[in-house]
Structures are given as C-alpha cells and as structure tokens.
Design a binder for these strands. Sequence first.
DNA 1: ATGGTAGCGGTGCTA
Length: 259
Amino acid sequence: MKIATWNINGIRARLDGAVQWAREAAPDVLCFQEIKTEDASFPRQVFEDLGYNIEVNGQKGFNGVALLSKLKFDEVSRGLPGLHDEQARFLEAVFSLPGSAIRVASCYFPNGNPPASDKFAYKLEWMGRFEGHARSRLAAEEACVFAGDFNVIPEPEDAHNPANWGDDALYQPETRRAFRRILNHGLTDAFRACHGDPGHYTFWDYQAGAWQKNNGIRIDHMLLSPLAADRLTSAAIDKRTRSWDKPSDHVPLMIELAV
DNA sequence: ATGGTAGCGGTGCTA
C-alpha cells in the first residue's frame, strides 16, 4: 500500500494540483497539512469522486490537517492526547487490512520561529507531547506511521546550505535533540532508510529564488514503527510539483509498504 | 544586513 504526506499550504488555493496529484499518484492514504480551512469548508466532493474517505481536523485560516483514505476509517482521533491545543495539528486513524491493521497520523509540528520566543517554547512542548504519544503507540506494537511536516531539519545533509539555518527554529540544537529523542524510541525515518545520500529536500522557500537555486531542506518525514518499517519497500519525494503554477512550498513524500 | 513570497481575509499574522 502507498501512504503519502503533503503540506499543501492552503487546500482551497491548491485544489486543482492536489486533485491531479492524488489521481496520478493514487496513494491509499494521503495526509495533508496546512489545509488552512475549517472542517465544513474542506473540498470533499472532488476527492470523494476519486474514491477517498475523508476525515478533517481543520482550523480557520491557519494550520489544519486531513486524512484521505481509500480504506474505511475504523477509528479517528483529533489532537495529541492530553494536550489542550488551540491549534489543529494532529489527526490519527486506524485502518483495517486483510489479517492486520495500520495506524496513520497526519502531523503538523509547530514552526517555532523565532527561537527564544513563546512560539519556540510551544514547539518544544509540542514535540515533547508527541514523544510521549509515540512511546505509548510503540508500546502497543502495531504497524504505525507518523507522517507530516515535522518542521525539523534532522542533519546537515538535509539542508542545501546548513549555515543559513543556524538561527532558525527548524535547526536549533534543542529541536534536533527532540527529534532524535523521538526516533530513539524505535521509529524509523522512512526516507533516510531508503536513501543514504545527501541533497534530498521537501521544502523550498517562496523567497529569494530558493527553488531555482535548489536551496531546500528536508523537513517532511514519515516515521515508522518496527512493524511498519519491516514492510517498507520504497520512499520517494515527488519534487515535480514544486515547479507547477502556484505551487505549495512543500512537495509530496510517498512510501510503499508490502501489505 | 536586509528583504525577498504566499495564504487567508480583508489587517496583520504565520510561515
């Protein structure tokens, strides 16, 4: 099965491209972040016409995540357990498969800029809450995929020019440490497990010709529990979408699992 | 060093 994630930066502003990509790539599960719209105004029909069931944790104007699935939703939960979050950043669901099941979450981690602000404190708090949640999911020994925009540059090889990011929340030592703590509970960075070489990015800023200069960063990730990682057969970034008209500043990431 | 772009919503905030 194919699972994809894409920070779409406004689903209504990006609808034609998002639908075209979903039709062609045909993921079984598609996670969106930054839909920037409320549940009631999510454009459901065009995706339902492609055969998707849809769950949304939306918010007016900012944030917002969604899960689209060709499989039936068995369970859905909104928000990180135990976190009273004003911001719509997390949506998790369980899907039944023949003889097994898989849990998938669409995650939009806080950006956290500027460092040394309340936004950065919120980012670290959110990452800590996520870590606790991931631990409890790992204890259940399920096939589980945490997919989304983590707003973390894990390593220098995940940035075209790491020196440019020294003052950015996405590359602070505390941010990278919090990400490693999450991984160290036993999650696999699916893209990195399939590609050892540097220079693969999922985000290019709109400003200063970042795309033309390939001045990108890898901040969208899929973290897999051991049962999911055992089934991982491929991972790919589809950077073609970044050159489309009116693109998102992020591009889709897709994995394939042998299930 | 600064400013560069985009979505939402109708101004300034967020990224």
